[in-house]
């Protein structure tokens, strides 16, 4: 009977051995949760792990992207020319129409320049812009980010605006030495302070995957479909007057303070290849 009793420490060791895997797994989950929580609190900072993996992964992504695009170019330019004649005709027609518009816009541009001088507005060219190439898109279906080939060595820092000639693309986050990731305006985490160009009413544009939603525009404001929405410059990231999107749909419910406005981004975010990072933007 006495022989069946063992040392008290032995039972403890057995219990530890039995639950070792569970304890290790619990520690792992705790570590994962702590990491996530830490990242949520210090969002602009990019950890060493992220920097290293970004630097290791992006050259491979860039190489594969170049290979895919070269193959696609070869196919489209030399092998697949079925629609070229029709396309040429459409392009000639568009060219004539655009030349007419251009003459009209020149006049508006000159007028705009005079007004800008008069009001002492800052010229857009005073913003130092860094051209960059898109290397890869977000790997997940639920988020909207891109990877670009410029990083902290080129002067890019977290929270800088990213634009194209058509309008805003997003803002930078997670910066490594030679690469940065850009949070697109259509991502659910993105929100931008905006102004409706005609009514001058302000609102917050939030991304929802494929488009944008314009929130907090008062119910009695007249908003028309196709109206341009620009940055208001009050958010602290984007300079004033950059195109964000055009109004796609306006819904007014019977009650409520605000109207529901859907927007389409002015930049085709599914087809961007080159972008500009505004290095010193002053809202």
């Amino acid at each position: 009977m006495v022989g069946t009793f063992s040392h008290p420490g032995c039972g403890m060791r057995l219990a530890l051995k039995k639950f070792r895997t569970i304890a290790l797994c619990a520690c792992l989950m705790l570590a994962a949760l702590l990491l996530y929580s830490d990242h949520l609190r210090q969002r602009p900072a990019t950890s060493l792990f992220h920097r290293v993996i970004l630097q290791l992964t992006s050259p491979v992504q860039g190489g594969v992207r170049t290979l895919v695009h070269s193959t696609a170019d070869l196919w489209q330019h030399y092998l697949w020319l079925v629609d070229t004649a029709t396309e040429n005709e459409i392009l000639r027609r568009d060219n004539r129409r655009l030349q007419a518009s251009l003459r009209e816009f020149d006049e508006i541009r000159f007028e705009n320049q005079r007004l800008k001088k008069l009001l002492d507005f800052r010229e857009a060219s005073s913003l130092k812009a860094l051209p960059a190439r898109v290397v890869a898109e977000d790997a997940s279906s639920w988020f909207r980010t891109i990877l670009i080939d410029k990083g902290s060595n080129d002067g890019v820092a977290s929270g800088m605006p990213v634009v194209t000639a058509e309008g805003i693309v997003g803002r930078t986050f997670q910066i490594s030495d030679h690469e940065s990731r850009v949070l697109l305006v259509t991502d659910a985490s993105s929100s931008i302070a905006t102004t409706l160009q005609q009514s001058r009413s302000r609102g917050i544009a939030r991304g929802h995957g494929s488009g944008l939603q314009l929130n907090y525009v008062e119910r009695n404001t007249e908003v028309s479909v196709g109206e341009l929405v620009i940055t208001s410059g009050t958010g602290g990231v984007f300079p004033k007057g950059l195109a964000v999107g055009t109004v796609d749909q306006v819904e007014r419910e019977e009650f409520g303070l605000f109207q529901r406005i859907s927007m389409r981004p002015t930049v085709d975010l599914t087809r961007i290849e080159e972008i500009l990072v505004l290095l010193r933007s002053e809202p």
């Binding site: 895997t21 290790l24 797994c25 792992l28 989950m29 570590a31 994962a32 949760l33 990491l35 996530y36 929580s37 830490d38 990242h39 949520l40 950890s47 792990f49 992220h50 993996i53 970004l54 992964t57 890869a136 977000d138 790997a139 997940s140 639920w142 988020f143 980010t145 990877l147 986050f173 997670q174 990731r181 949070l183 991502d187 985490s189």
Partner: peptide, 29 residues
């Protein structure tokens, strides 16, 4: 079916976080 699998899943998620989404740590969890 062991701690090794859990660790591999966590590492996979951590790597995924660098190329997907804007919330580092989310895919790890």
């Amino acid at each position: 079916r062991s701690f090794r699998g859990s660790f591999a899943a966590f590492m996979l998620g951590s790597w995924y976080d660098i190329v997907a989404g804007s919330h580092p740590g989310l895919h790890g969890v």
